[in-house]
Structures are given as C-alpha cells and as structure tokens.
Design a protein around this nucleic acid. Structure first.
Length: 726
DNA sequence: ATAAAGTGACTTTTT
DNA sequence: GTCACTTTAT
C-alpha cells in the first residue's frame, strides 16, 4: 500500500490502527506529524470515511495548516470538509454556529490578554475592591485557572477571604463579558464544554458527526479540553491521541500531562503504540537529552535511538555577560556559514524568557546580520496595531467596550475621563452599551441622549458616533482592507502618528503590514479576519522561508527542528527559572523545557551560560544551571562548571570571541577578497563603494558606502557582495 | 482635557 | 529600565 511505504512498523501500526481509542506515545523527531497526516489520508482513502466526519485538533494554526497541506498532498485535494484546526479556532467556529443556544450573539469578539485584564480592573473598580491588594493581573490569572479546570463562578472553591473576593470578581466578570458580547480565550473552550454537557441534543449532533477524532500534542491538553474530547468522542469512541509527556511544557496554562494516564484509565481498552526511533538528531544529541530528562521522576523511560550516527559532541561555553553571549553566537554563525558548513537559516537561538531576546538582537544588529524573531505579540502588541484593530472590532461589535475605551479618544477628540464616566452612566441608565448610546447620538437632533451631556462633550461624542455609524452603515460587509482604509482616512491616522521621529516611520510601516494582512482576507468577512488575528500564536509567525537565523523562546520552539541550536542563559534562575525553585513539579517542567530545546537540533547544540545576568537593569552574578551537571562529560565539549576557578576567572579571563573546542586547530587564515575603491552591489542596499576592509576574528569585515543606504559594516562571507564594473 | 511628571509592578513561558 | 497607570500642573 503506497500510503504506508516509507513508514516504520510502529508508524504503520498507528496509521492503520483499527477503530477504538488509541494512544500514541511519540518521542521527539519520531515522525508523529507523518503518522497523523497519513492516518487521516488512510481513513479517507482506504476506509471511505468522509472528511467531514473527521476532526483533527492541533495547538497552533501553523501545525493545522501544515497538516492540512500534507493531507491534501497525499489525497490530491480530496479533503473538502475535513474539520481541522486548533482547539480554540474549532471551538470559536462551533460557538458561532450554535450561538442561538447560548447567551451571546454569533458576532462575539474575542478578548485578548490585555482586554481581559482591563475588564477585570474595571470590575474591581465597580465592586469597590482595593486594586492594590487585588491586582487585576493576579485575579485574572485565578479566574483563568478556574476556567481551565471547568470551574464556574458558583463552584469557585472558597478557602480564604481572597477566594471569596475572586469569586465575586469572577461572577461579575462573566456578566461583563456577556454585556460586551465578548468571550475570552478560556471561554471559547469553556462554553463548548458547557454546551456539550448541558444540552444532550447538541452533544449528540457533534458526537455523531465526528466518527474519528485525532489530537496532536495531547500532553498539553487541559481539563476542559480533555472533557471536550470525551464528549465529542462519546458516540463513536474513535479517539486517536498523540503525545509525549516529556514535552509537556504548558502546566502553567492548565495543561496536565496526567491526561495521558487519565486517558488510559478512562479507556482501558485503548491500544498503545510507542514511537521511539528518532529521525532528526544525532545520537550524541539524543543521549544528552535523555541524560537530562532521566532525572525527572514518575515518567515512563524511553530509549531514543537513531541510525544517524554519533555526530559531534555538544558544545558548552561560559561567557561574561549577555552581551558577550550574543557576540559569540553571531561570530560562531558567521564562521560556520563562512566555512560553507551551514546556511544562515540553519540556526536557531533559544532562550527561556523574552527579555533575553534583546541582547541577542543587538548582537545581530551590531554585526549587520539579518535575523528573524518569533513572537506574534511583538507585532499585535504594538500600540498602532491595537488601535486600528480596536476600531475594526468596534465596528464589528459596538458593544465591545474594551475597544471603545481604547479608540474613542485616539486621536484626541476631547473625550476624557469625565465624559467617559458620564457616557457610562447614561448607557447603564438606558440599558444600552456605550457603543449603543454613541450610535444613537449619531442621529443628531433626534437622539434623546444629546441633551444629557454638556455642550462640548455632546458634540465630541456625536462626532465619534457619526464616524462609527458611518463605518457600520457602509463597510460592515466590505472587505476588511476597505474598511481599514476608510478608518485610516477618516481619522487621519497617518498624521496622528507622524511626529517626525524615526519611530513614527516604524509605526506607519506596521500599519502597512496590517493592511497587507487585511488584504489576504479580501473575500472573507470582517469577523474571520478579527478572529484569526485574535487566535494567532507566536509559533504561527515562524517563517522558514527567509534564510536567516531564528530567535525564539524555548516554548515557541516546540514542534520545530533546526540543524544548529543555541540554548542560551543556562543559569540557575533563568533556566531553570527562579520561579520554579520551590515547586518540584515546576522544576521538572523546566527540565522538560531544556529537553525540548536540545531535541530540536539535528546536528549541533551549543549551550552557553553567562557569569553575570542583567535583570531589572541590575547585573548580578549567577551560577551555571544545575541541568548542565547531568550531561555526561564525554559528549560535552568546553568548560566544566563543576569545581572550577570560575570566581578567579571572572576577573582574569580574556574576552572570548569564538566558540570553538579549546584544542581545535586554529581557523585558516583568510585573505581579504575586496579592496578599497571597488564598486560593489548588495542585494538589499544596492550599489556602493568599498571604503575599507580588514580581517577580524577570522572574518573579513568590509566598510561599504552605499548610494542609498550610506555607510554599512558588513561581514564579507554573509553579505554576498557582487563586484561591479571597474 | 491634556501634557508632563511621578509611581509601581514587572519577567517565565502563550492559545 | 520599561511599561502602564495615576497624579499634578497648565
């Protein structure tokens, strides 16, 4: 059978597993995505299951998209109707379809993190609770945790006075969400679970529809997701889950790898298939990874093996601080690329906390090397993007008060705190949302609300109401880009942004990027555009097409692979993070995080720790990560952190420029290939003239003055300069 | 109503 | 050392 060729016996067994519950325990790099895609193709082509009756769930849109493309490939496009997506997107779609059975409208908006915290803050204020003792962020966290555990406000367990306060906020918060016709991330799952639990007709409908359910990254499901799956699989019982408890890294988000055990208990007849053969890494990398993860208790030991050979040992390097760490990594990349051993796109630089990305970025910028940073909130968190999305959301759903509050006075419209308080009061008294009042004010003289405000305020509010009413009247069904452009024009956003600074240009560039995204939704409704933006994950921004190094958190690295991986900041307090020190469970999760990082690598792993790390703006001495002790010395090159004279070294050692085995042969001496006065051409910067060239750290550094871009310092081996004319 | 200046939390990870 | 929110001065 063609579908099965190229699969090992265990993979074949998983692909063709007969109906009934199946648990696939898949080690890193063991081809689980292959198993999932081939199984879907197998179900459709060999068992005649209709795509519409198959549900496949992933955790990121990117994974869903890739899976869809691969199944499409296998079946030459016969996949129409296949239900494939993330938990959140599938639930959002289902809720819009079933809105009639639920206490909100089909055009609900999805509140992001900021919106959620703002709303909690508002509720805390309304309830006259002290926001110093009850910080909105912390309370929101408690509410979110409850929701992930399927605990509703009435069932919120009360042991302390704080619990009682949280319960009150939770109750009011849920009411406020409904008034805004909004759901938060957790609600998307929660409401589906409630629907399936409380309404047998709905449960029956979906349970019958989904003859086969496949779940990726099962170890990262939380209580709600697990319950949901059980309901959806309650009729056919064909639940096929793939996961690896060792790669569970979302405990803090409510994920519980014990769902794997729960699955075995709930489905005692489940078939279990083990995938251990690794097709990604060298044996040295796998051995290091196993040495690290074997220190965790209460786990099923797996023996990872490959036929790729041992490969090279892992490298470890001590550096003075983050700056040196960045420089070292950049130099190492330049060297490996210069030697022709790797391409720029082969490299990934991973870190525990987002804050670490800055010094690494600076190293790349300093060396004039391009790089790619993974992280959606980098873009969607920008003020200008949030502003504009706020406008679109408000047009889509005028009851969304988070968006309204964000945009009503941006740009300045003389609507300040006082006017907002009044507007709120008027809205509450009239039983309307603030947006509803504004839309009524747009009727001008006919509006009964006009007289309730002072003259100035009334004019300002009426003006904004007109804008909003106009957008809704003319563009609610227009392609998102048309609406966006109309908004941009009506509020003259460009001149609002333009304060002459360099940052302003940046911001306007971001607006253009948003326009480009909107353009992709030309033939889809506004709601879909907004929803897809609300549900993008950081991982979705991973772009393999640009041939440049990738910077990303260890969390974002899950599911990816790179030929060369740098794992930075291996210090106690950073990895493992200090927050995990007093909780053994969290410490084990830190270890899994390190394990995930190591197993992303195909060929090489570089580990580094800094003797000093700046947090809060203060540089403090650190200790090497305890995890480093677990990697056997015979597969680890470089400085051994145990029992060394590092305190002396801290003061005496020379700056380290290069990441090399201490005893490796010196790099070949290279000669300059350019000379001053030459005319050259660069792919991005156009024509220029070489001013100077020199050898530094075994790399040729060329100073070029470009006609358009001015003076640039370039690493010759990476810049690919073309000599032109004479 | 707004701009300027001050305060305090924040850094773990993100659908 | 940064962001977001609050207070103060205009």
């Amino acid at each position: 059978m063609e579908l099965l060729s190229g699969l090992n016996p265990q993979q074949q067994q998983a692909v063709t597993a007969v109906s009934g519950p199946t648990l696939v325990l898949a080690g890193p790099g063991s081809g689980k995505t292959r198993v999932l895609t081939h199984r879907i193709a197998y179900l459709i082509s060999h068992l005649g299951i209709k795509p519409y009756n198959i549900l496949a769930v992933t955790f990121t849109n990117k994974a869903a998209k890739e899976m869809g493309a691969r199944v499409d490939d296998l079946l030459s496009g016969e996949t129409r109707g296949l239900q494939l997506g993330t938990f959140h997107s599938i639930c959002a779609r289902l809720l819009r379809r079933e809105a009639e059975r639920l206490p909100f409208d089909a055009n609900f908006v999805i509140f992001d993190d900021d919106d959620q915290v703002s709303l909690v803050r508002q509720v805390i204020k309304d309830l006259d609770i002290d926001d110093k003792s009850y910080r909105p962020q912390a309370v929101q966290g408690s509410i979110s945790r409850a929701k992930n555990e399927l605990i509703l406000p009435d069932d919120y367990p009360i042991q302390t006075y704080r619990d009682e306060v949280v319960q009150r906020v939770y109750l009011r918060y849920q009411q406020a969400l409904l008034q805004n016709n909004a759901l938060d991330f957790d609600d998307l799952l929660l409401w589906v679970a409630i629907l399936l639990e409380d309404q047998p007709a709905a449960r029956d409908k979906y349970a019958r529809q989904f003859e086969h359910i496949l779940v990726d990254e099962f170890q990262d499901t939380n209580t709600v997701q697990y319950r949901l799956l059980k309901h959806l699989a309650s009729f056919h019982r064909n639940l096929f889950v793939v996961g690896d408890a060792d790669q569970s890294i979302y405990r803090w988000r409510g994920a519980d790898y014990r769902n794997v055990q729960r699955f075995e208990e709930d489905f005692p007849d489940a078939a279990t298939i083990l995938l251990e053969q690794n097709y990604r890494s060298t044996q040295n990398i796998l051995n290091a990874a196993m040495a690290v993860i074997d220190q965790n208790h209460f786990r099923v030991r797996k023996e990872l093996f490959t036929d790729r050979g041992d490969g090279v040992p892992l490298s470890m390097q001590e550096v003075f601080n983050a700056r040196e760490e960045g420089g070292l990594i950049v130099n190492t990349i330049a060297r490996l690329v210069g030697r022709g051993e790797h391409e720029p796109g082969d490299f990934a630089i991973m870190y525990r906390t987002n804050a670490q990305s800055r010094s690494l970025e600076e190293a790349f910028i300093h060396a004039n090397l391009p790089y790619k940073l993974v992280g959606a909130q980098r873009f969607y968190g920008r003020r200008e993007i949030k502003d504009l999305l706020g406008y679109l959301r408000l047009v889509y759903n005028p009851n969304d008060e988070a968006s309204l509050a964000r945009v009503i006075n941006v740009p300045r419209r003389k609507i300040g705190g006082k006017t907002m308080t009044d507007l709120r009061t008027v809205a509450v008294n009239a039983g309307l949302s603030m947006g509803g009042v504004l839309l009524d004010l747009a009727r001008g003289e006919k509006s009964e609300f006009l007289g309730t405000f002072g003259k100035g305020a009334a004019a300002s509010l009426e003006g904004f109401g007109h804008l909003l009413a106009g957008w809704r009247a003319h563009h609610i069904d227009s392609p998102p880009l048309i609406l966006l452009d109309q908004v941009l024009a009506d509020i003259d956003y460009q001149s609002y942004l333009d304060d002459g600074s360099e940052e302003a240009t940046d911001r306007w560039d971001n607006v253009q990027e948003l326009r480009r995204l909107a353009a992709e939704y030309a033939d889809r409704p506004l709601g879909e555009f907004l929803e897809s933006i609300a549900l993008v994950s950081d991982q979705d921004t991973v772009d393999q097409s640009a041939n440049v190094p990738t910077l990303l958190t260890l969390h974002a690295a899950k599911g990816l692979e790179f030929p060369v991986v740098f794992i930075t900041g291996l210090e106690d307090g950073t990895l493992p993070h200090s927050r995990s020190f007093d909780d053994p469970e969290e410490m084990e999760e830190e270890r899994r995080l390190f394990y995930v990082g190591i197993t992303r690598a195909k060929d090489r792993v570089y580990l580094s720790y800094a003797l000093n790390r700046t947090t809060f703006g203060y540089s403090e001495p650190t200790e090497p990560s305890r995890f480093l002790d677990d990697i056997p010395e015979n597969i680890l090159d470089g400085h051994n952190p145990l029992g060394t004279t590092r305190y002396v070294e801290r003061h005496q050692r020379q700056r380290q420029d290069e990441w090399e085995r201490p005893n490796s042969p010196a790099a070949a001496v290279i000669q300059p290939t350019y000379r001053a006065g030459q005319n050259v051409r660069h792919a991005a910067w156009g024509n220029g003239m070489v001013l100077n060239t020199k050898i530094e750290d075994g790399e040729e550094i060329v100073d070029v003055f470009f006609e358009e871009a001015g003076l640039k310092k370039l690493v010759a081996s990476l810049a690919r300069l073309e000599v032109v004319g004479k």
